[in-house]
């Protein structure tokens, strides 16, 4: 743990005063926090607290009415999700968002989209530089496949895979983009204990080996307390706590939010 603590660097992404409303509903209300380099940050909170909305804001899916987001020290403008992808922000979804008609390998290769530069005329020929590029990226994808231990399902259409493996392929697709920040929206939802353990191991390994910064949303408190360096707690769109797992666990407001208070 101490070794881990040493790796954590400066602020990579800073969220300041984000307010997001859908009509009359305030999904996020003046939320500020920061994500530091190489850390694993967990965002938790009861249902409807605004966790997924927060990721969607970071991603460029939702445009907040107020507040700013700065990535690597640069404040960013209103942007489309593909621009966020270009800057090095990758994510997975709560309900799996894989390309169901494509094989595992193709899904992961699609994650390399931004690393491939050849234009469509070269691609139509599938020869020379285009073929070279295709094979280089295939090699990287094979590394991801090895890392996630999904060699056997390389050519299987992902629509046919069981749920746990689909989640793993989705992680693979995000990893293939070599992101700086990886946003994971409930990576362990609906998994059994073994699958959860596997997923935890992959998340820790990604963080450890590639130094990828990870922000994840998770409901399983055991997992959250075990793997995260820092925890941000949201409730009704407001941030109610931010600190180490132990500090957050002892926080009265957090306990109230989860267990309710008597009035």
């Amino acid at each position: 743990m101490s070794e881990q603590a040493k790796r954590i660097g400066d602020t990579l992404l800073r969220v300041e005063g984000i307010t997001l409303s859908f009509g009359g509903v305030r999904a996020l209300n003046d939320v500020s926090f920061e994500i530091k380099e190489h850390e694993i940050l967990a965002i938790i909170g009861p249902n409807g607290a605004g966790k997924s909305s927060m990721l969607n804001v970071i991603n460029g899916f939702y445009h907040p009415q107020e507040g700013t987001i700065s990535f690597k020290g640069r404040e960013r403008k209103r942007m489309r999700p593909y621009v966020a992808a270009k800057q090095g922000i990758a994510r997975t979804f709560q309900n799996i968002a894989l390309f169901k008609g494509m094989s595992t390998l193709d899904n992961i290769m699609t994650g390399r989209m931004l690393k491939m530069k050849r234009n469509f005329l070269w691609q139509a020929l599938y020869w020379g530089p285009a073929l070279k590029e295709e094979i280089e990226n295939r090699e990287f994808c094979e590394k991801v496949i090895d890392f996630l231990e999904i060699q056997a399902i390389r050519k299987t259409p992902v629509g046919r895979l069981p749920y746990g493996l689909q989640k793993r392929v989705e992680l693979g697709r995000a990893l293939a983009a070599e992101p700086e920040i990886l946003l994971l929206d409930e990576p362990m939802a609906g998994m059994n204990v073994e699958e959860k353990e596997d997923m935890c191991r992959f998340i820790l390994d990604v963080n450890d080996e590639f130094g990828t910064t990870i922000a994840l949303i998770e409901h399983d408190m055991g997992v959250v307390m075990d793997i995260s360096d820092r925890v941000v707690v949201l409730d009704y769109g407001r941030k109610i706590a931010d600190g180490t797992p132990d500090a957050v666990r002892a926080d009265q407001q957090v306990i109230d939010a989860y267990l309710g208070v008597s009035h």
């Binding site: 899916f61 489309r80 593909y82 992808a85 270009k86 968002a97 390309f99 699609t110 697709r173 983009a177």
Partner: peptide
Amino acid sequence: IAAEIIGIR
């Protein structure tokens, strides 16, 4: 949606 997230315009 997922396509846009991984950088496809």
